[in-house]
Each structure stands twice: as C-alpha cells, then as structure tokens.
Design a protein around this nucleic acid. Structure first.
Length: 416
RNA sequence: GGGGAGUUGGCAGAGCGGUCAAAUGCGGCGGACUGUAAAUCCGUUGGGGCAACCCACCUAGGUUCGAAUCCUAGACUCCCCA
C-alpha cells in the first residue's frame, strides 16, 4: 500500500488486512482526522441471521467505532424487496414484509454485540432504508435521481456484466437495485452527514454510484472503501462448515459449533484470521500465525476463543473450549455439545435411531443417517452403530446418550 | 403481439420408449493418512418409513404391456422480431 495514512482507522484497516480499495485515500484520511465521521455499511435482510461472511465487515465497523468513528448499520428493509443482482447468476426469490422484518430482527441481535448504540458522539445508529425507500414516488425519483444515471455506464459494471455476457436475464427490478443503493448513500449523507460507505469488494460499483450521485445532487464529496473478498488459502469462498453456513446467531449455530469452526481453520489462514477477526495485537497475531506443525493448534484455539468471546461472550467461549477438550482429548462428553431434548410425550413408545440422528442435526435426512450408519461413521456413546433399524425406547434414553457422526460432530440426546 | 428454445437430483449437465433413480463434473458426507489442519487416496451421495414398502425427471391428463423419453392442455424461464 503506497499511501501512509495519518488516521488511526485507516492505519488499522491497512495493517490488519481489511482494505481492498478506497476511492480517495487522502480525502478520506483528512476527513477522519478532522472530526467524527459517520460511515455506513448496508445489509440486506435475506436471512434470519448474519453469517461469517459478514463478520469481517462487522469487525471493520467495530474498529471504526473504536478509532473515533460513528458507525451506521443500515438494514436493507427496502432494498431487499428488490434484490441485489451483483455477481449473481440468478434472481433471488423475493421476500415478503414479514420475513424481512423477522430477518432484520435476527440481524440486529448480532450487531448489538459488536457495536455500542446510542445517541451521542460515536454511538452507532441503526437505520432501515425502508424509511425513505418505501414512500418513494416513482416519477419524482426518476426525475430527481434517475436522470443522473447513465444506463450505458451501469451496463458496463463488472457486477452485471457476467450476467449479460451469459445472456441471462437481468430484470428491470434488479437493475434498479444499484440506483436505490446509491440513493441510500445520498439520503444518509443528507440526513446524517454520512461521509463513507464501506462494503465488500463486490459492492464497489454500487458504492461508486452513490458517491457520484451525491456529488451531482448535493455537490458533496464522500468516500467509499471496500474490504477484500475473503477466501480461504486454497481459494474457496470462506464461510461454510459441516452442514452449511456458519451463522452468527446462537440459535442457528451453537457457540460450541461456532468455536469448532474457528478451531478447524486451515494452518495457512490462522495468522490472517487472527488479524481480521480478533483484536489481539498485530505482533501477537504474527507470532501465533507463524507457529509450525502441531503447535499451531494452540493458535487456532486462541483464535476460536477470541472470536467466540466477541460474539457469544467469555463464558460461552470457555464452555465451548472445555467441551472440546473433553470430547477430543479425553473422548468423553461435554455439556456444551449441541443437545436435542425430547419430552416424554413426543417420544411415546420410542423413536428410531435414524430419527434421532436427523433430529439432532447430525444428518440432513433419514437416508443420509442410514448411509452414515452403513459407512460406519455413526456412533452411539462412542460405540459404532451397525443396526440402522435400532429402536430407542424411553428406557434406553433414561440417561443422556451421545451420538456422533464421524470423528468431529457430536450431539447429546436427553429426555426433558 | 409474433416466432423459436427450454424446464432432469444441492448446482452444472447427459439421457430422448424398456437394460433409468437416471452418465459425468462440482458440492456434500464417511473412511484412510495426520495435528480436530491442508493436500492426497478410497468409498458414498434423491426423499419418506423401525420395516414391508411407498413417492419421485415442472403440473394435470392421455397413448402404450411399458414413458424422464411420445401426445394434449397448463404453468414458468430464456432468446429473436415488433
């Protein structure tokens, strides 16, 4: 990076690896030094929880607040009704109001753990773009905003090019997404003096549009900054663990499973992840990331502990770590394993082992559970399960049982 | 409005009357090797059910001894022309 920033925020961004690109390093740097800058990141409400793919940007907001900025988390209550087509090959299903509201609710729980919200100075604020988008008048919007957009230019954006090149349809609805996001930035600048929009590098085009629009309409100079698309060292997009996305909401992925995700980080990514997802000093990250052989497992445990503590709290992180030690080092059972609790009524006469494996989340379907058993990957209290027809009666479940799928995934089943 | 193409398992994509629950690749899962890592190798991979068995190639009908494959209608998607 050629530019040597004076502001603490930009320095952190560069040093810890959060920075992919910036529209104007010097202008932004000077604005940051001059006073409290409001900056926003937008989140579409497409799922009821955020996932690790969002975590880097949340950490950026956290650092932003720590270094004297005012973070704005913008929920895409309005834009989610349109759907961002950037780098997507297909149109996503549209959600209704109720689903969007529920999703926003789930997402807000996570933000509250990383940022402190309030009214003053650098307190973060939570907004929803439905506030200004829902009431838009079409003709007014076209005349005031639409006239500043060049379709020629919009079509040249990389984010939609692949879609066009492959002759996949890009609906007019989706095509308008970028003008709406640009309008968001304009509104945030007008209402809150927001000077900076941040986002993943896939948002570059959308961000630049907002900057141009704001310059044209309000004659204000504002800035954009993007974070790199995070891939694992082998080039895959990060964020999947066994069985799906790594959700941040505890009710969708338990703290123990979250902890496990980080514990299983690839060697080569450990140092990088420590910088991006923990607040440990840089030299400590470098030292830990440079450990060789099995020693690096210690670094991964620290990574898991730090990241889990930020999200779920120190107690949850400690419990997850204790359970992991119990399960992996002693081959026992920990309290913090994902647990399926059955009540006597739903148990009735009993339940098949296949159903238990499915219900406990170790397999996605009955067939999958049977396959697991057939392949010798399923264990009941650490003994290999061979009989797929095994039927568990209430008496069999008097004591909690431990089910395992492979060596790494475990769950408890108990009567409640 | 007119003309054409298409809709197959999580995704991509073969199959075009029986040998098809359906090639192949990706993804997923399990195993081996290890360090709860990566890489590699091996296996496996539609769904429901304790089971017998049942449901499944867009939907609904039909033709056939027999249909993912043929016919009819409908839904949806894409392309081209206006």
């Amino acid at each position: 990076m050629a530019y040597h920033p004076k502001s603490e925020f930009l320095r952190v961004m560069i040093d810890r690896g959060y920075l992919a690109d910036c529209t104007d390093y010097q202008g932004l740097d000077e604005a940051l030094i001059a006073g409290v800058v409001p900056a926003y990141i937008g989140y579409d409400a497409t799922a009821k929880s955020l996932h690790v793919g969002h975590l880097m940007n949340i950490m950026v907001l956290r650092w932003f607040q720590k270094t004297g900025g005012k973070p704005i988390t913008l929920m895409g209550g309005g834009t989610t009704k349109v759907g961002d087509p950037s780098f997507r090959s297909d149109e996503r299903p549209l959600l209704d109001e109720a689903a969007i509201a529920a999703n926003i609710d789930g997402m807000q729980q996570v933000f509250a753990k990383y940022l402190s919200y309030g009214e003053d100075g650098t307190d973060a604020i939570m907004l929803n773009n439905a506030e200004w988008l829902d009431g838009l008048n079409y003709l007014e919007f076209l005349r005031d905003i639409g006239r500043h957009f060049s379709v020629n230019r919009m079509l040249s954006f990389e984010s939609v090019k692949s879609r066009l090149d492959r002759e996949q349809s890009l609906s007019f609805l989706e095509f308008n997404y970028m003008s709406l996001q640009a309008y968001d930035f304009l509104e945030l600048n007008r209402r809150y003096g927001c000077l900076l929009q941040m986002g993943g590098s896939d948002q570059w085009g959308n961000i630049v549009n907002g900057i141009d629009l704001t310059r044209r309409v309000l004659d204000h100079e504002i800035y954009g900054l993007t974070t790199p698309l995070l891939t694992t060292s082998d080039g895959r997009k990060m964020g999947k663990s066994q069985g799906g996305a790594v959700w941040l909401n505890g009710d969708m992925l338990s703290p123990y499973e979250f902890w496990q995700f980080w514990r299983n980080t690839t060697d080569a990514d450990t140092g990088k992840f420590l910088k991006l997802f923990t607040e440990l000093p840089l030299d400590e990250c470098d030292r830990l990331g440079a450990l060789e052989g099995s020693e690096i497992n210690e670094a991964k445990i620290i990574l898991a502990r730090e990241v889990t503590t930020l999200l779920h709290g120190a107690d949850a992180a400690t419990a997850a770590e204790a359970t992991a030690r119990e399960v992996f080092e002693k081959g026992g059972t920990g309290d913090d394993l994902p647990t399926l609790t059955l009540d006597a009524a739903e148990l009735g006469e009993g339940i098949s082992i296949v159903q238990l494996i499915v219900r406990s989340g170790l397999a996605g379907s009955g067939k999958e559970a049977k396959r697991l058993i057939a392949e010798g990957g399923a264990k009941l209290n650490d003994a290999e399960l061979t009989d797929a027809g095994l039927f568990m009666t209430p008496a069999d479940l008097a004591e909690p049982i431990k089910l395992s799928a492979g060596k790494k995934r475990h769950a408890l089943v108990r009567l409640g």
